[in-house]
Design a protein around this nucleic acid. Structure first.
Lengths: 266, 266
DNA sequence: ACCTGAACACCGTTCAAGT
DNA sequence: ACCTGAACACCGTTCAAGT
């Protein structure tokens, strides 16, 4: 049914036969500022992709638009990149490179480290709203994403949690961060498109919602909070959520310690 | 700068001038099984949309494909729906209608209710992987989504948590569920496309990863768990995460009670 | 080795007609 | 009131040529 040769499924650029970029420009020498060099190369293409995605969003991004930005014909890019999907996977890892991970030997409290990792992740997702949409699409195993995942794992382990609970707890924290950053980033992008501040956009939507009887019950539940300064509000909610997760981790850890202590006592 | 008339931003179908479907078919009578009735109507269109999205995914979905499915020309659909975006928003709320929410007067333990809401949400996201992608896109304030959000809020409040911590904790739980369901659904869809079971796909990817030296460190950290039966593994991780969140909520609640108790004692 | 042009098989949506 | 056809301005990608 399939072709005669056993072929691994192509699940990610990073799992291709040659995981490194198709070609890498090797400058003939260090001199002569290549600022406006006409030649393309993989890094220039990925950088331009990130720039365009930030400026105009994923919806408006196209290979033709990118080519125009690079002052080149649409098909030139295909010399360096196999498909649009591959290019987007490269762009995602370029964004992941902005994540700040603690150095390996640090002795900082695991709670502080976890908070730092969460915040750096959230900030990146808000800076690059297109990343959230693509993370769901791909396997996301580029080198920088992997470095971050590894650091997160190290921090979770250093909390003293038993090994079999690590993946669940990591999922709780980082899926939360991902979802939260997604909503924030998307909302910010919407506001930019509409030419409004976040507070203005929020009160416009609220004004419309308030005219509707269908939303009565939800309104009663939502109304208890100040609607001004939506960004500060979100920062507070984010902290509460992290506090909750950290408190939960401590409970799970203590529970496990008590149980293993009992075992030892018998 | 803008047009003379003050115009609210169009942020969602549900906030349109006429939030109800553009037209609703009003059957002339109850008789005569309309099974193969040639006429379109809003509900038939949304139902066909959901069916197509489930079967072929968001990427392959198009207005032309949908029209073909309905045995109609591409532009007929536009009589009932303004844009593709509006239609997708309707489809998202149709999926949200599948969420099971506890009836209002229930006296079940809030922990059980929270777990039920989380599970029903996760299952829906896995059944309809396209929902995750669209939730990030739109405001998601359709009637069924709102009913679910309201139920979730009620459960969180019944935990005894102080009001100002409710939004943060809700974000922790439901952004986690959303992210987790997203990954699961996307992975399942990938496997279906490749014609493999989830376990087969997983071990294929793992086999490729294992050949690579770049992944050494991450492998050491991941290797500690059994790779068989990936679905059972994910169910366990999901439970651990919920346990962690619930334990965290209890801690926050007790902390707040102690503080307000102190205040009362002074 | 690197880049181009023309072409293929698609999109969402508008608009003027049809019945 | 409901549906169609032709057209516009786009897509990603292939493929045969150019230099």
């Amino acid at each position: 049914m399939a072709s005669g040769r056993t072929r691994t499924i192509r699940a990610s650029v990073w799992l291709n036969d040659r995981p490194a970029p198709k070609r890498r420009a090797e400058h003939s020498g260090p001199g002569g500022g290549a600022e406006q060099s006409a030649g393309l190369d993989h890094d220039r293409i990925v950088a331009a992709t990130v720039r365009l995605l930030d400026a105009e969003g994923l919806t408006k991004f196209s290979m033709r638009r990118l080519a125009a930005e690079l002052g080149v014909t649409a098909m030139s890019v295909y010399w360096y990149v196999d498909t649009k999907d591959d290019l987007l996977e490269f762009a995602v890892d370029a964004a992941a490179a902005e994540l700040e991970v603690p150095e390996e030997g640090t002795d900082a409290d695991w709670r502080d480290q976890l908070r730092l990792l969460a915040v750096t992740n959230r900030d990146m997702l808000v800076r690059h709203p297109w990343v959230s949409r693509l993370i769901g699409e791909y396997l996301n195993i580029g080198p920088h994403a992997m470095a971050f995942a590894t650091a997160a794992q190290r921090v979770a382990i250093s909390s003293g949690l038993p090994m079999e609970q690590i993946p669940g707890v990591l999922a709780l924290v980082y899926q939360f961060v991902y979802g939260y950053g997604t909503i924030e980033g998307r909302f910010a992008a919407r506001c930019r498109e509409a030419g409004l501040t976040q507070d203005e956009y929020f009160s416009e939507v609220m004004a419309t919602v308030n005219e509707r009887p269908e939303f009565e019950e939800s309104k009663r539940l939502m109304d208890s909070r100040p609607s001004t300064d939506i960004e500060a509000m979100r920062a507070r909610d984010f902290e509460v959520a992290l506090d909750c997760a950290i408190a939960g981790i401590e409970v799970l850890r203590d529970r496990a310690r008590r149980e293993s202590g009992q075992d030892a006592g018998r």
